[in-house]
């Protein structure tokens, strides 16, 4: 066991999978000699060489488009999109090509590509280094969307994603890249995709969240405890496929639901969680579902602290569902 950051856990998973399977290749902007702008791919170029760790031209659609071709041919490419905000030039390649290849070819051409991308706010990155656009991708049939919130899960889920037969968008909450540290086994392990995690048990109300927001929820839960409220924090870990049963089981237990996500509120993935609860667990609810999310504005620069959900806003939501 070693104490690793989320970032070091990502790096450990990449090394582990590249050693395990020579079909795994890494490509993207600055991922080679530079080891990535966040250092997620540090050491890969030296260990695996320029054949398997490719510094690409600066073109996101080319990174994803060529990764698709590599996967069709039989490799296991793991392209990096430097910031999720930069992924839109590759949007067509992801939603129209990558996600549909297996289906449209009648199962003949699977495309097991894992797109890694740092996402989310809280690092003073402004409009273009802060976005949380997972909902666009979760809306695309054929694409898995996986988001770890701990070093243990970052390593185990990334290993699972690379071994998965389907394309996976692997979103790394960069705000907690270096701030969250924990023990991570040196040995090989995987964490299954599609299984949520109870980050904290409670019986008073449930908070459903993922990525960096898990830590905001945990902070709020700790404060709520002072008032005698036992908050359960459910870390979804995977938006597609979604562990619906874990969501429903938690709501049935607590009867109160707060849905927390940092993306713009309207049409965000939390709306899907809210709809799921309303459709299938309404009879268990003691209070209306409350969403805490980013606002429907472009991601701000200087006013980031106003935009980002924090423990204060989450606590207010917990109060609302508790005092309905």
């Amino acid at each position: 066991m070693a104490i690793l950051t989320v970032l070091q856990a990502v790096n450990a998973a990449l090394k582990q999978e590249m050693r395990r399977d020579d079909r795994v290749v890494v490509l993207g902007e600055d991922v080679g000699k530079n080891g990535g702008v966040f250092r997620a791919t540090e050491g890969l170029y030296d260990e695996f060489g320029s054949d398997r760790v490719l510094d690409t031209p600066l073109a996101e659609s080319g990174i994803i488009g060529t990764a698709i071709g590599m996967a069709l041919y039989g490799l296991r490419p793991v392209p990096e999109i430097q910031f999720l905000d930069f992924i839109y030039p590759a949007f067509d390649q992801i939603v129209n090509e990558l996600a549909k290849f297996r289906y449209r070819s009648g199962g003949q051409y699977p495309a097991p590509v894992v797109i890694r991308s740092p996402y989310g706010g809280g690092i003073r990155g402004g409009h273009y280094h802060s976005q949380s656009s997972e909902a666009y991708f979760a809306h695309t049939p054929g694409l898995k969307v996986v988001i770890p919130s701990t070093p243990y899960d970052a390593k185990g889920l990334l290993a699972s994603a690379i071994r998965d037969e389907d394309p996976v968008l692997f979103l790394e909450p960069k705000r907690i890249y270096r701030t969250v540290k924990a023990e991570v086994p040196d040995t090989e392990y995987t964490v299954p995709i599609g299984v949520a995690r109870i980050a904290r048990e409670g019986r008073s109300c449930s908070i459903f969240c993922y990525g960096a927001m898990v830590h905001v929820a945990l902070e709020a839960a700790e404060k709520a405890k002072e008032k005698g409220t036992e908050v359960e924090v459910v870390d979804l870990r995977s938006l597609v496929p979604l562990d619906e049963e874990a969501v429903l089981a938690s709501v049935r237990k607590t009867g109160r639901a707060v849905v927390l996500y940092e993306a713009p509120r309207t049409g965000g993935f939390g709306a899907e969680i809210s709809a799921l609860i309303a459709e299938r667990a309404l009879e268990y609810l003691e209070a209306p579902i409350v969403r805490v999310a980013g606002f429907d504005t472009p991601f701000p620069y200087t006013l980031e602290h106003v935009y980002m959900p924090d423990a204060r806003r989450v606590l207010a939501a917990v109060d609302r569902v508790m005092n309905f």
Binding site: S61, G62, I64, G65, T66, A67, I68, G69, M70, A71, L72, Y73, G74, L75, P77, D92, Q93, N96, E97, K100, R104
Partner: peptide, 18 residues
Amino acid sequence: SSVIATQLPHAVGAAMAA
């Protein structure tokens, strides 16, 4: 797909893989 030119990066990627 029917979206024009999208197959071209795939061909390059497959060629790189080969």
